[in-house]
């Protein structure tokens, strides 16, 4: 067991992950909009960050010395909203109005939502913004950290690599990028649409430290974050995940990347998911 966390922490985070999964599936069942596949694959990553790693405070969401988080894969917003609501950044009732006019739970993250540090939604931009934030902490000689979560598909965007180059050049050891490496993008397997491999070698070549983690093991993720904090260069955590994780009929199937109001979400199979959870 690590110096940085206890068995109780791990159990707490695992339970919290289940709870958040349930909340976001309720959101999807109700709204029939959004992106369940990637929202489910990132659950443990965001839970580890928001319930153990990040120094953020719902009472003072704009605290200048807070850690920053950028959800570069902005379509994973439901998980982030479920967590921010649970942590008290805004009322849980907001979740029901996801994607509706005036809701704090906008389709993709927007600055008007308490707890959101950066707009996102257009893929490939988050690392760049996060690098600017980390540079600001360096300039101000402040010790807060910047974390950014990227999808694996969005690594196909050239801007990611512009930002990777700049982060290493400016020695942003206060910047941690996490890749939700679920291997799928909207129309199929990442490596069949446009391979991003060899992934660790690419990041190393750009001057980054690389740590690999099991993206559904909070323990593995906490270890990776603690390793990242000690590095003298920006660090990328390649978190191996399963798209649709936890909802067995969605797991590892690209079709569940996104829902439309017409998507046939099988109600009995949704219930099957929840029943199976309760049995455990």
């Amino acid at each position: 067991m690590s110096y940085y966390y206890t068995e109780e922490d791990v159990t707490r985070l695992e339970q919290k992950s289940e709870e958040i999964r349930k909340t976001i599936m309720e959101l999807f069942e109700r709204t029939r909009m959004g992106h369940p596949g990637g929202s489910l694959s990132e659950v443990e990553i965001l839970v580890a960050l928001y319930y153990h790693i990040l120094r953020v405070n719902a009472e003072n969401p704009k605290d200048v010395l807070r850690d920053r988080f950028v959800l570069s894969k902005g379509h994973g917003s439901p998980t982030l909203y479920a967590i921010l609501a649970d942590r008290g950044f805004f009322a849980k009732e907001e979740l029901a109005s996801f994607r509706q006019f005036g809701s704090l739970c906008t389709s993709y993250p927007d600055m008007r939502t308490p707890g959101i540090d950066m707009v996102s939604g257009s893929l490939g931009n988050g690392l760049s913004a996060a690098a600017g934030m980390a540079l600001c902490a360096k300039r101000n000689k402040e010790d807060w950290k910047t974390y950014v979560l990227l999808g694996d598909g969005e690594l196909q965007e050239g801007l990611v690599w512009e930002a990777a180059m700049a982060a290493a050049y400016h020695r942003l050891d206060n910047l941690v990028a996490i890749i939700d490496n679920n291997g799928l993008q909207i129309n199929g397997r990442v490596n069949e649409i446009m391979t991003i491999e060899p992934l660790p070698d690419k990041w190393k070549a750009f001057g980054w430290e690389v740590v690999e983690a099991d993206g559904h093991s909070v323990k593995s993720l906490l270890d990776a974050c603690h390793i990242a904090m000690k590095k003298c260069a920006p660090t990328v955590i390649i978190a191996h995940t399963v798209k649709g994780k936890g909802v067995h009929f969605m797991e590892d199937i690209a079709y569940w990347h996104s829902l439309t109001p017409n998507t046939d979400l099988p109600a009995e199979r949704m219930r099957e998911y929840f029943d199976r959870r309760q049995e455990r």
Partner: peptide, 16 residues
């Protein structure tokens, strides 16, 4: 790298 120039500027400016 102009895209990163502006993206990073946005990040820095977001911090004040």
């Amino acid at each position: 790298a102009e895209q990163n120039l502006i993206g990073a500027a946005a990040g820095m400016a977001s911090c004040g």
